[in-house]
Design a protein around this nucleic acid. Structure first.
Length: 468
RNA sequence: GCUCCCAUCGUCUAGAGGCCUAGGACGUCGCCCUCUCACGGCGCAAACCGGGGUUCGAAUCCCCGUGGGAGCACCA
């Protein structure tokens, strides 16, 4: 690939940004970045029935969160209807396309009859002009559709970066509709015109489009254009091996944000689905760009494995710059009704919690005691640790801690350990009651870190409350 | 029904004829570490869909079968 590479991601705004679509977008984006080229976002909204502004917004939100930015002003097909009309008129003028007056009912009947005969359903070309053929007179009051005059024989072939050489017989293809009776153009046609007009050199898209490719190439040829390079990436399956859908739970990219994923981690997991580089598992964005190669992408579909996705997220959380995680953590704290201002600095909490949290949802939950007053103790933990001896320990500890000149982890550590040793108690006998008193449950970061984060006042108050 | 595609541990994958007694990772299980939960360390179990070829030799090449997927719209 040369420096003039331009790839695109062309979703239709009929719903949220699907996780599979996100991976396709990532691959497309990577292919461009890898070549030092550019990436374009194009909204394919020619289906006015199903396209919605909410879906457009959702696509932007998802892509934005993932950091997959379009290098150009996003394109909208609905803004290009004039252009499509222009090309169709040219094709109509010299016979590369023609009008067809078949009604939908007529076409349905045709299809049904063919299926009954166990044939592949296809338009029979009844309105296709042929030398020496007399066409029926156009019926009254019927607005025709426009069909592309596909080559009747020969073959169409292309070399897919992922699938290799693919060849189709033109006889398998029929004359597809490129303009509906309401005058709007259809997908296969718009894609071709757009990819050409926008200088797309590499088409990286889902492999549900493989079968459309020969048709598009034929149109491209009719337009006197050389086809771009194609790379059809397989889709993502649910854990059960069936096409990923809402039935499996989260499918929208934004839902992954809500589940506590960091965008880079999600990207990392996604890139490993169908692609690998030796034994490496963790790839930063730059590393991906450096190593990625579309032609190495697996041909077969991959299943989404939440466990591994969470592992990747955890790996990322453990080494990320807390300052980068903080805004996202902030978002999650607010989401569960906590005020980030009513507690320790986010960065410090992130550093204390990151090793025990696979997701930011977990981190937010486990940090609740730092941002809100305790509403009670975990029943089991209270019974086990807030015993008479436990309370005695707490009482002793409160006095010792209150006397500490500096409220910092090392000093707190020394105080707690010193007390335990002095009483000949195991640390567990001391740290656990303290943990329950202060965090509400028997789980928290190391006790000294926990106390340091909580602060002197809250710690002392909670210990006192626990003793009573 | 027709056309096209795919096929290595439960999952993601390495593997491009001998380096494979098939490697790594997630997950699972066991052990160690330990103030809780984790992190970390160590270890076990776990796969070449089936059948034919080709070859001295096949996970790797070919054919058939099986299983899975996509498309065949006035959807994209």
């Amino acid at each position: 690939m040369s420096g003039s590479v331009v790839t695109r991601f062309a979703p239709s705004p009929t719903g949220y940004l699907h996780i599979g679509g996100a991976r396709t977008a990532l691959f497309s984006w990577l292919a461009a970045k890898k070549a030092g080229g550019k990436f374009l976002l194009r909204i394919e909204d020619t289906d006015r029935e199903r396209s919605t502004q909410a879906a457009v917004d959702a696509i932007f939100e998802g892509l934005d969160w993932l950091g997959l930015k379009s290098d150009f002003e996003p394109e909208y097909q609905t803004k290009r209807f004039g252009r499509y009309r222009e090309v169709i008129d040219e094709m109509l003028a010299d016979g590369r396309a023609y009008r067809c007056y078949c009604s939908k009912q007529e076409l349905d009947a045709m299809r049904a009859a063919q299926l009954a005969r166990k044939e592949k359903p296809r338009y029979d070309g009844r309105w296709r002009p042929e030398p020496g053929k007399t066409l029926p007179p156009p019926p009254e009051g019927v607005t025709p559709v426009v069909r592309f005059r596909n080559p009747a024989d020969g073959k169409v072939a292309f070399d897919d970066l992922i699938r290799g050489h693919v060849e189709y017989d033109n006889r398998e293809l029929d004359d597809l509709i490129i303009q509906r009776s309401d005058g709007t153009p259809t997908y296969n046609f718009c894609v071709v015109v757009d990819d050409r007009d926008m200088g797309i050199t590499h088409v990286v898209r889902g492999d549900d489009h493989v079968n459309n490719t020969p048709r598009q190439i034929n149109i491209l040829h009719a337009l006197g254009q050389t086809p771009p390079v194609y790379a059809h990436v397989p889709m993502i399956l649910g854990p059960d091996g069936v096409k990923l859908s809402k039935r499996h739970g989260a499918v929208g990219v934004i839902e992954y944000r809500a589940m506590g994923f960091m965008p880079e981690a999600l990207l990392n997991y996604l890139v490993r689905l169908g692609w690998s580089h030796g034994d490496e598992e963790i790839f930063t964005r730059d590393r991906m760009i450096e190593l990625f190669d579309v032609s190495q992408v697996q041909k077969s579909p991959a299943r989404f494995d939440m466990k591994k996705a969470e592992w990747v997220n955890h790996q990322y959380l453990k080494v990320a710059d807390p300052a980068v995680v903080a805004p996202e953590f902030d978002w999650h704290l607010r989401r569960i009704g906590l005020d980030p201002a009513n507690g320790p600095a986010l960065e410090a909490v992130i550093e204390a919690q990151r090793e025990r949290c696979k997701t930011l949802v977990e981190m937010a939950e486990k940090s609740r005691f730092l941002y809100a007053e305790l509403t009670g103790y975990d029943p089991k933990d209270a019974v086990k640790h807030l015993t008479a001896e436990g309370k005695q320990v707490l009482d002793d500890l409160r006095a010792r801690l209150a006397a500490l000149p500096a409220w910092e982890a090392p000093a707190l550590h020394a105080a707690v350990h010193g007390y335990a040793e002095g009483c000949g108690l195991g640390l567990g006998k001391v740290a656990q009651p303290l943990r329950v008193a202060v965090a509400g449950a028997a789980v928290s970061p190391p006790i000294d870190v926990t106390l340091a984060l909580l602060g002197r006042e809250r710690t002392l108050a909670r210990i006192a409350a626990a003793v009573n």
